[in-house]
Write a protein that binds this DNA or RNA. Structure first.
Lengths: 190, 190
DNA sequence: CTAATCTATGTACGGACGTACACTTACGGA
DNA sequence: TCCGTAAGTGTACGTCCGTACATAGATTAG
């Protein structure tokens, strides 16, 4: 074998695909799932309408791409968050989870809203279901590096519950209640 | 004032309105939020298209009506569920909540899916947000008749978290993990 | 240089949608 | 009985959508 290199033909700009996915997230943030169409995405990405169907087979594929990216980013961020927590006591974990919820809801509420919109959209769209499942599996996996599996499952459920509530409720979550709930689970069986 | 009775003019069938709302729920169950249009609802209810805009100002109003009914039904059912639990110990409550989740997901998964789909829709549609908030407030209110408020908040978050997971996850929830999570919260501070 | 081939785009089609609104129907008062 | 008025409906309009597809542009092999 001399130089039998794979010859990628044209420009085949991989950035373009990523730009489109980023645009999906932008549109979902500002217009909601309801306003996320090929045309809106193309406009936001600054690409021709045709590109959105060239890089993605269907609208559902577009959403799938967005959910996949979201899951990857989330996994990385959560792992970075969990790293420094290893070896500390459970109380400390409860506080960290409280901060996680509060920070997400204050700094990144747009991003979180998009995450749950896609998550719930998976109920309708079979193509998205495995990705949505992967999303929650990530939370359990990462927490499992800190606590037993069953505890991780419980913490992850509470996390989901509080985030969803925070997204819809008109009154902000009570920090003390968050701490209490996380602590109840963290210190169980200790 | 002799017999100055209010004279409701025509037939003004109030059943019609309810039938339309029931049809919204049916359509959402079978077609999802994505397929819930005036036309689909009218077809399912067996009423002319015009009726759907006669009884409801807009599609958002239609969804609001459905969410309102769902909330009312849920409140009633949950109160009935909680009644017999008063006075029993916390362990018993944890078991009852586990059963609640398992039963909802097996018997009524269609109904539950619709509930969370409307919840999702509320993120996009301001008109629905107060109703969605009311929905979760109901859970906390009812649980507050059994346990302290902060415990009720925690239980309600876990409940939401597990139900959502159950709707999306390809693998069924582990009963033991549910019990464990609810018990952790129920027995905290005991 | 030319042909072949792959990348990318603009346009157009068929359909569904939300909603407005002119209209019909049926009732109650006189 | 007849009329005014409210209840309820059918149709049509303008818009937007997903997607197919013919074409244009770019790149390399020969």
């Amino acid at each position: 074998m001399t130089t039998a290199k794979k010859t990628p033909r044209g420009p085949a700009d991989p950035k373009r695909r990523d730009r489109i996915i980023a645009a999906v997230l932008d549109v979902m943030t500002t217009e909601g799932l309801i306003g996320t169409s090929h045309r809106a995405v193309a406009r936001a990405a600054g690409v021709p309408l045709g590109s959105t169907t060239y890089y993605f087979d269907s609208l559902e594929d577009l959403l799938a791409g967005a959910l996949e990216k979201l899951t990857d980013d989330y996994a990385e961020a959560l792992r970075a968050w969990a790293g420094p927590l290893a070896g500390h006591d459970r109380r400390r974990l409860a506080l960290a989870m409280t901060d996680l919820v509060v920070d997400y809801l204050s700094d990144d509420s747009g991003r979180i809203r998009v995450e749950y919109q896609l998550y719930l959209a998976a109920m309708d769209r079979p193509r998205l279901r495995p990705l949505a499942a992967q999303y929650t599996a990530t939370t359990v996996d990462v927490l499992s590096t800190l606590v037993p599996h069953s505890t991780a499952v419980a913490l992850s459920a509470v996390l989901d519950g509080f985030l969803i509530r925070g997204l819809v409720s008109p009154v902000p979550l009570d920090r003390a209640e968050l701490e209490d709930a996380f602590a109840a689970i963290c210190t169980h069986h200790d």
